[in-house]
Design a protein around this nucleic acid. Structure first.
Length: 612
RNA sequence: GGGGGCGUGGUGAAGUCUGGAGUUCACGCCGGCCUGUCAAGCCGGAGGUCGCGGGUUCAAAUCCCGUCGCUCCCGCCA
């Protein structure tokens, strides 16, 4: 590359640019500017060369005119995509007829007096123009290139805005931002802990926090009264489109307040984030429904209420039915319920596919009925149903000609679950243009499993609505726990906490946690509760889930700067990785023999081996 | 742990069902031409272990088995 004279002014200050490429407009005409960024596109006409210079603010067209000789010819014609360059030039109006209306800076261009290549680039492993979908593994391996693309950089900026909005609201509301440790003792929150071995105490482990739950309660006991944190959380469970092993939450907690104040605060936060990300929602308060209502009408504790299609209980229509399948279910205490799927227009094969999908998610069967023009029902089971029964179905589901009705008869929990899934399957709107927030409140203390066994629905520090009810009828007891749902995604959850040591002990007892067990696992916390704990309540909101929905992204990886793949790997840095024997020895850890054996087998078949 | 989808020059796709020469398209890359383009254009060229391993076959990108990777889902995330 030809040697260029150095600009000593720039060298002194270290400042390579005086303005952003994407902010130049007609009011900048005549301005002498210094730009620095990347060559996003080049159009080399042999004489004049145009480059679209991109930096974090956007694009501007730079004109490299041979008469101006902004750099030696071999440098100019040698420019390639993603070369990092600095340009000194003048902003001028584009000639008549060459304005580019697709570009915010399209009315102007920068004619270069000087161009300096700051850094060259090898040909890229994939194009950055956003015209094709690139394999995700490749994108993650080159995430630093991927984030030069509009999609990712837009999402990173949106995420930043969202977090700033959250901080602003929390600050305005008098919350104190407090950090809590990320190397902690294992907390009882249900998910698998990520463990970190201790060198100083061999054989002992820290856990990464699944949430700052107990610490924020300690902050309340400590008199902070209003706490928040943009907190990193870790849960070692399998990945989904909306789940990563590490994730960020807006975590907050307040003392001397309760559920209403928490929900009001969440709504303030959510509205600010929505507005700051350029969306609008109506002034009506967020819809609120109980867990029971959500399950009953939508078959889900995270109902997508962008569309109606409520589940309707049709059991009463079949109290005296001759249809054995329904009669048997009702005799067993189950129910018959249905949804009106609307105008699905499915052929027989499509309807049968729905049946097998329902069976896949646990239903014994699914009855479909298509409403004919004359109002009659076309269905494989129609012949088993009386005219009255058919009429009751049609009126119960508000059937109109062309509608497809889906009916399930089974244990009520199964019916609701299956119809809830079918509802999403046939009714799910594409995209997220509409924003439907729902507060789901009054969660049960326990979930009742298939076998009737009770398992806690929330962590054991959640206050029951009524302690007596919890003791005497645990399976129906309600807790002061609540979720925020957006478009069928759980954005976050929270609860009023137990602030009384005696009640906490009782709750542990009901949940089957023995005194010794409780004392051993978090005796320190039980003791803290005994020093004048204020009533307190809080919430935690998933940042990536929220931002991904607002950005119209199908998964949270798109709004996470450096996400992991579904198998927990980072293709860029190669984590997780094996470590040297010395490191393990310091920690007092051995890798299990069968794992080492598997490594050896791998090494036999693969040329490259990892140092262990 | 289980089910589905995908894997083809650097990128994206078609080809796979119904086996017959690494064939095609777009982008990128290299060389040449080109002074108002904006996905610049025109001409020429290079580039492949069809993810990997095994099997069936005269013959495998294509069929079968296994395996790895990415992804969606069930379980899991009380």
């Amino acid at each position: 590359m030809a040697q260029e004279p150095m600009n000593t002014d720039l060298m002194k200050s270290g400042l390579l640019k005086t303005t952003g490429a994407g902010v130049l407009r007609e009011h900048d005409l005549g301005a002498e500017v210094q730009l620095a960024g990347w060559v996003a596109r080049r159009r080399d006409h042999g004489g004049v060369i145009f480059i679209d210079l991109r930096d974090s603010t956007g694009f501007v067209q730079v004109v490299l005119n041979p008469e101006e000789a902004p750099a030696p010819e071999d440098v100019l014609h040698g420019l390639r995509i993603e070369y990092c360059v600095q340009v000194m030039g003048t902003v001028r109006q584009r000639p008549e007829g060459t304005v580019n209306p697709d570009l915010p800076t399209g009315a102007v261009e920068v004619v270069a007096q000087r161009l300096r290549v700051l850094s060259t680039s090898e040909p890229l492993p994939f194009p950055l123009d956003g015209r094709t979908d690139i394999d995700e593994g490749l994108r993650l391996q080159y995430r630093y290139l991927d984030m030069r693309r509009d999609r990712v950089s837009r999402n990173l900026r949106a995420r930043s805005k969202a977090i700033r909005a959250m901080r602003n609201v929390m600050d305005e509301q008098g919350f104190l931002e407090v950090e809590t440790p990320t190397l902690i003792a294992s907390t009882p929150e249900g998910a698998r802990d990520m463990l970190v071995p201790s060198r100083l105490r061999q054989g002992q482990f820290y856990a990464l926090p699944q949430s700052p739950q107990l610490f924020k309660q300690l902050l309340m006991i400590g008199g902070v009264e209003r706490y928040y944190q943009i907190a990193r959380c870790y849960r070692d469970e399998d990945f989904r489109a909306d789940r990563q092993v590490e994730f960020t939450q807006l975590d907050f907690e307040g003392a001397f307040w309760g559920q209403e104040e928490v929900l009001a605060t969440i709504e303030l936060v959510a509205r600010r984030v929505v507005a700051d990300l350029g969306h609008s929602i109506g002034p009506d308060p967020f819809v609120r429904m109980t867990y029971a209502e959500a399950m009953e009408s939508y078959g889900s504790d995270k109902p997508d209420v962008r569309f109606d299609m409520k589940i309707v209980d049709l059991s009463e229509a079949f109290t005296d039915t001759d249809f054995k399948a329904f009669a048997g279910v009702l005799a067993d205490g189950g129910s018959v319920r249905g949804i009106n799927g609307g105008q699905l227009g499915l052929a027989r094969a499509g309807l049968d596919a729905l049946v097998s999908e329902a069976q896949d998610v646990g239903a014994k069967g699914l009855v479909w009925m298509v409403v004919e023009d004359d109002g009659s029902l076309r269905s494989p089971v129609a012949k088993f149903l009386s005219d009255t029964e058919q009429a009751d179905i049609a009126s119960g589901l508000s059937a109109t000609p062309g509608d497809t009705l889906l009916i399930v008869a089974d244990h009520t929990n199964t019916v609701l679950d299956v119809l809830g899934r079918m509802r999403l399957h046939v009714g799910q709107p594409d995209g997220h243009d509409e924003l439907a927030f729902v507060f789901v409140v009054d969660f049960p203390v326990f979930e009742v499993g298939e076998d009737g066994a009770l398992s806690p629905a929330h962590h054991p520090f959640t206050a029951p609505a009524d302690l007596d009810a919890l003791v005497h009828a645990p399976e129906t007891a309600v807790s002061k726990a609540y979720d925020l749902v957006l478009n069928g995604s759980e954005l976050g959850s929270g609860s009023v906490r137990i602030h009384d040591a005696a009640m906490q002990a009782k709750v542990f007892e009901v949940m089957g946690i023995s005194d010794e067990d409780a004392e051993g696992r978090f005796g320190w916390f039980l003791e803290a509760l005994r020093y004048g704990t204020p009533p307190h309540a809080g919430f935690a909101l998933g940042v990536a889930r929220f931002v991904s929905i607002l950005q119209g992204e199908p998964n949270i990886r798109e709004v996470i700067p450096f996400p992991k793949t579904q198998t927990g790997a980072d293709p860029l840095t190669g984590s997780p990785s094996r470590v040297k024997k010395d490191q393990l020895e310091e920690l007092g850890i051995c890798v299990a023999p069968d794992v080492v054996a598997a490594w050896a087998e791998e090494a036999d078949s693969d040329p490259p081996t990892t140092d262990t």
